[in-house]
Each structure stands twice: as C-alpha cells, then as structure tokens.
Nucleic acid binder design. Sequence first.
DNA 1: GAAAATCGGTTGTTTTTGCAACGGAAAAGA
DNA 2: TCTTTTCCGTTGCAAAAACAACCGATTTTC
Lengths: 219, 219
Amino acid sequence: MEKFLPILQKTKLFAGLTEQEIFSMLGCLDAKTGVYQRGSAVLSRGDTVNRLAILLEGALHIQRDDYWGKRSLLSRIAPGELFGEAYIASESGVFLNDVIAVEDSTVIFFDVSKILTTCTSACLFHTLVVRNLFFALSEKNRRLVRKLDYLSGHSIRERLISYLSDEAGRQGSGSFSIPFNRQQLAEFLSVDRSALSKELCKMRDEGLLEFEKNRFKLL
Amino acid sequence: MEKFLPILQKTKLFAGLTEQEIFSMLGCLDAKTGVYQRGSAVLSRGDTVNRLAILLEGALHIQRDDYWGKRSLLSRIAPGELFGEAYIASESGVFLNDVIAVEDSTVIFFDVSKILTTCTSACLFHTLVVRNLFFALSEKNRRLVRKLDYLSGHSIRERLISYLSDEAGRQGSGSFSIPFNRQQLAEFLSVDRSALSKELCKMRDEGLLEFEKNRFKLL
DNA sequence: GAAAATCGGTTGTTTTTGCAACGGAAAAGA
DNA sequence: TCTTTTCCGTTGCAAAAACAACCGATTTTC
C-alpha cells in the first residue's frame, strides 16, 4: 500500500495532504487495492457498489453492451481518476455498466461514507478531503456535460468536431493524440466505425484536419 | 426569504435540518434570491458562475443553441433541484449553456465555498449539509449518466424507449406524463421533430405504446 | 370572439448513416 | 520468421433520419 502514496498524493482527492496524512487516512477509509489483468472486469453490471474507486495504474473503460451486442463506451479512466462515485450515494447502488481494464491495472477502493459521517477524530485533513471530494465530483460532472455535448451533435462530423476541438483545448495544442482507436472512438461517439472512418477522410480531404493513427492535427 | 424555508427544507441540500437551522445558514451562505419571468434568462453562456443555485418555484431549461440556431435541451430543472454545481469548482467558472425560465421562476443562490472552507463556527449541521451536498452531486451525476444512455441510442426508437421506460420507472407507473412538448422532446433527444413524431406514431401503430399530448402509456 | 401563434402529424425528397463484406498494412503472438 | 489477429480505409447497398413544406386543431393574445 505504501508504494502508492506518491501516486495518491497527486490525485484530486488527496491534493494538499502529506504522504503521512494520506497514510493515516487509508486505514480510516478502509482502503483496499485490487489488481486486474488487461481484459478483465473491475466492476460488472449489476454489482452493488458502495465504495469510491481510484485508478492507480493502467487504464479502464466504462462501457456497456446492449441486447444486440452493440457497445457504448461511456468514458475512459486514466490513472489518478476516480470512478463509481455516482452509485455510492444511490439507494440501490446497483452498477449499470461494466468497467474493464484495457491495460494491466491497479485500483484502490475506499469506504467513503467514513469521510462523510461525523468523524470521531475530527482531524483537519478530513475537512480538506471532503472539499477535494466535492471538487472531484464537480469536475466529473463537467466531464459528463462535455460528453453530452459531443453526443448532442446531429451528425458524425459535428460530434467529431466537438470532441476533437475539446481534446485539442484540453491538451493545449492543435496537434494531439487521443486514447482511442477507430473502433473505440466510434463506440465513444455512438456512431458506426466505417461511417466514422469515411467522415474523417472526407474532412481530411477538405483540409479541416490531418491524422495518422490516433494522432490528430486540426487546421 | 423566510417564506421559502418550507421549500428549502424539502430540498436534498437541506434535508434533515430544521427551518431554524436552515435560516441560520442562509446568512452564513450569503443567500440571494432572484425572480425571473417566463422566457427570461437566469444564466447565459459566458457568465462567470461561482454560486450554487436551487430552483424554488417554476421550471427551468438548461439549453444551448449552436451556430445554425439548432437547440440542444440538456435538462429540465424542477423545483428543489440544484444547478450550476459543475462550474463553481472549475478554474474558469465560465458557464457554457443558457438557463432559461420556462415558467415564472424563483431561484436562490448560495456561496457554497463557505460550506467547504473551514467553518469558523464548526456547527453540527454544517457537516450534514456537506454530506447532503455530496449526495446531491452524486445524484446529479447519475442523472447525467442516464441522459448519456438516452443519447447513446443509435436510432430514434432506441432513444425514445430508453427515455420513456426510464421515466416510467421514475414515476413508478407505465402511464405517466413528460414535461416536454414534441419540439422540446426532440431537442432533448437531439433528433428531428418530424422524425420523432413519425417514429412515435409508428410505435403506437405497432402496439408498443399509447399517447396523447405529453401523456404516455407503455404497453 | 377574432386574429395570431403554437403544436403536432403527414408527406415527399434528399442526405446521411448503418451495415456487411473485403483487403492491405501493421502489430501481436508463436 | 511465419502465422494469426487486429486495425482501418473502402465500396455498394439498404435503411433511417433530416429537411422543408403543408395543414388542421388547439391555444394564446388582444
């Protein structure tokens, strides 16, 4: 557990705490880590979730397959990001999606209710963590709204433009790479892969952008 | 301000507090109310938001018009619901959508940072409000994920089914009414109104549902 | 109560998207 | 290195959705 302290210190949740303070909270939060091989499930649809999770190493996809096997890719989780936060406070707590490790991954789980319920040891950093938790949730919220924006696009081109220009802004450059291959990007934007491919090439031919593999350049 | 205490008491944010306790917090949170006529803007794209808002009376639409005047309806806010929560914790704090009063509305704004920063009067109910805030944000989060689900549908029919069956579940009956007219429902689901109308009638002819105006019955 | 605006269903046409299948290039695995 | 798998662009066709325009009914406004 100790070896993850430097990583935890960089997360939004524990921002501003010393390694020592984080360490003392881990016990209080009943922290448990899990290791997942590439391709295995971290959480599955129907699981009861009552813990907050943070990805320490690797990469995860939050996704869902419908009756016909059509897959929706809701979001990708990068190291330091938290997930499962939407369900811990729900009555049912039943998880509606699958969380899959797309790389070998390590995840840490917290019993977050311990932070929220009146803390017996009303320590100073508790207050800070609660504040951080609020910021993290708020940011997550913004992310979801952004994704809603992508999907509100009425055509493949609109969805692509809103997603790609957003990504360019986030990475601070018109030249950037995305964490998806074509199939995954199609699932992320809820469109057909071949139609996506067609549209991308059309946009390239029109001089709107350049790309090679998962690297893009907006013009 | 006092006349809104019974309404505030029913909100998620102040759940579990007495009217007296809420009243004493209003000053601490620097609460301010605003009254908006039907059709007027509560918040506009580009505004800097650093306050949490709760709708006390009326109804709001969070929406956005693109370059071509095409409107996306992100969500509808009912009395007691909070909004603006995504932006108060962001660096820029710049609001990306428009919030429009679709009925005469009253809104209350809070300086929520006051709850989060170390409270000089570390009162008991502060802790409770922070916990409530977390639950409220978490619920908002779930709502956004649900809407993402609707928009992930690959056809108008799929979007309709996921939205309508969700609404049926939420209202606990196969017979229910929705807070949108056809045009608004089309904007909410990001589809063309006439195509939506066509699909609805087709589904009715196939015996999947019945409807009249904004009242639906799933079969 | 008359005029104006909104609402929702309908139709026909155009455009876009989905789908299925193929093939070459690159990557992964043995 | 050779085989197998994955990736991604391409094509043709079928299906779906967007668009524009129209109309009767209802609602709103004055």
